[in-house]
């Protein structure tokens, strides 16, 4: 049990009559780069919101570090949330604060860290994600899409959380920036041992991931190494595997 950071068991979620997840199962290991892919509308974002505790679940269990999150006390939940980082799809940051202030704010809100250290750490994290130092004093709306995503990633990892969720990190980036971003995420996982879970439509990102979960019709139809996706019977997955993109990128044919 201990090697898994997050276990989702028989997860059910509904929007009114519409059932999004019909008993979804997945297991995310500690210190791995995990990807979630699936059709548009297959409930990836809903799953993310549930993992982030932004939306209550309608059935099943989510186990985080060995604890069922629906049974945690408010104090324990608060502690748990401190250990989670997130980057939303468009690199959301507080628009009234500069990039540096955003990072310092997150660090100082979560832990009792003195201002000097928080500023130093914010600069370290910005350098780590490949941004130039002067970005510290810029405002989110002054950044380009790619820079904004990087800054948002820096904010997500500002307090060295156990797990970071990325929602479509490479969407809207040019191929070079996207690959840089993928490599950066890989390096982060390798050098810090943090777990990163990314929702993605970018098949090229899968080249860098350890394991992948494929969502289709409310269930996980595949979980394992990206290359193993070839040997499945699921119709949607068979279609995916037969796409030119998949064959070229993942199988190298």
């Amino acid at each position: 049990m201990a090697e898994y950071l997050i276990i989702v068991e028989n997860l059910v979620s509904r929007y009114g009559e519409k059932i999004v997840h019909k008993g979804l199962n997945l297991k995310i290991k500690k210190g791995e780069l995990y990807a979630i892919v699936g059709e548009s509308g297959s409930g990836k974002t809903t799953l993310l919101r549930e993992l982030l505790l932004l939306r209550p679940i309608d059935g099943g269990r989510i186990i985080f570090n060995g604890k069922d999150i629906t049974k945690l006390s408010p104090g324990e939940l608060e502690e748990l949330k401190k250990r989670i980082g997130v980057m939303f799809q468009f690199g959301t940051m507080f628009s009234s604060l500069s990039v540096g202030e955003n990072l310092v704010y997150v660090i100082r809100k979560r832990y009792k860290i003195d201002k000097h250290t928080a500023v130093e750490m914010a600069k370290i994290k910005l350098t780590l994600v490949g941004l130039k130092p002067h970005v510290f004093y810029m405002y989110p709306h002054e950044l380009s899409g790619g820079m904004r995503k990087k800054a948002s990633l820096a904010m997500a990892i500002a307090t060295d959380p156990d797990v970071v969720f990325l929602d479509e990190p490479t969407s809207g980036l040019d191929p070079i920036s996207a690959e840089e971003f993928d490599k950066l995420v890989r390096t982060l996982v390798d050098s810090t041992g943090m777990t990163i879970v990314q929702i993605t439509h970018d098949l090229a990102s899968l080249l860098f991931t350890d394991r992948v979960a494929v969502l289709s019709e409310g269930k996980v139809v595949y979980e394992g190494e990206p290359k193993g996706m070839v040997n499945t019977q699921n119709p949607w997955l068979r279609k995916l595997v037969s796409t030119l993109r998949f064959r070229r990128l993942i199988l190298g044919k």
Binding site: E120, I124, T127, L128, P133, Y137, D190, S191, G193
Partner: peptide, 19 residues
Amino acid sequence: EKYKKLIELVKTSPQVHPP
């Protein structure tokens, strides 16, 4: 071994000043 990289990464704290 896995932590050596971290020490390297925190060494670079660039000096920039606000305008």
